[in-house]
């Protein structure tokens, strides 16, 4: 077998487009998913049992079924309910919902990691509930969940390749496309694999840098 990467050069723009779409998909799912997660976590000890049940069901259903099926449901089944989303949008919605379910659990553990006494100290200083959340709970909680949250974001980036199955034009979709044109399967997937690797590695470096800037206070070790 002889390797031939030269043919791939012509598809530079397709790869770039794929990378861009993969990153966009990841960004949308991360931001939307984290918002869902934060809201869900705040609601998960709501007074109303119905609200708690709703959050619990959401988390369990999403976490215990394949992401691919969730994408299929949104793309193929939702149209029967009158909502027809283009592939990319369908994938973005599905991945956001997926990220949301994991984020609920992550944020919930973050909120639970802040001792009750910290909240009381805030209350005793005359702060509102929101002020306590914003100034007393948020940053220390984020620091505690930072490793699991960032791993989850990376899993979303890698998992966004599933979107290719509904022909959303992200990086893995590009790979399939280029492969069908060139028949250089090994070369194509080796390149795409390397691109994913570099993207994730860069993301990890960014996360590590951000951690050092955002969480500067010393802790007991």
């Amino acid at each position: 077998m002889t390797l031939n990467f030269n043919q791939l050069w012509r598809y530079q723009d397709d790869f770039l487009h794929g990378i861009q779409m993969t990153l966009t998909l990841t960004l949308i799912a991360t931001v939307a998913g984290m918002l869902i997660g934060l809201l869900g976590a705040l609601l998960s000890n709501n007074r109303l049992p119905a609200v708690r049940l709703l959050i619990r069901s959401y988390v369990e259903v999403i976490r215990n079924t394949p992401a691919l099926i969730q994408i299929f449901l949104i793309f193929f089944v939702l149209p029967y309910a009158g909502l027809r989303l283009p592939p990319f949008e369908a994938a973005a919605v599905a991945l956001s919902i997926y990220m949301g379910a994991y984020s609920v659990e992550i944020f919930r553990s973050g909120l639970a990691s802040i001792p009750r006494s910290q909240i009381e100290a805030g209350q005793c200083l005359g702060l509102t509930r929101f002020q306590v959340f914003r100034h007393v709970i948020l940053l220390p909680a984020l620091r505690n969940i930072y490793p699991s949250l960032t791993s989850q974001i990376i899993l979303i980036l890698l998992g966004s390749s599933l979107a290719s199955q509904v022909s959303a034009e992200e990086l893995f979709h590009t790979a399939a496309f280029v492969e069908s044109r060139t028949y250089r399967s090994f070369e194509v997937y080796a390149v795409v694999c390397a691109i994913y690797f570099v993207m994730v590695l860069s993301l990890r470096l960014i996360f590590a840098g951000a951690e050092r800037i955002a969480f500067r206070w010393p802790t007991r070790r």
């Binding site: 006494s117 100290a121 805030g122 209350q123 200083l125 005359g126 702060l127 206070w217």
Partner: peptide, 21 residues
């Protein structure tokens, strides 16, 4: 209660300072 607590300070056994500040 919030306004009242501005007039009533409490100091705890475990200090309860905010570690990130």
């Amino acid at each position: 209660l919030r306004r009242l607590r501005e007039k009533v300070g409490i100091v705890f056994q475990q200090f309860n300072l905010f570690p990130h500040m």
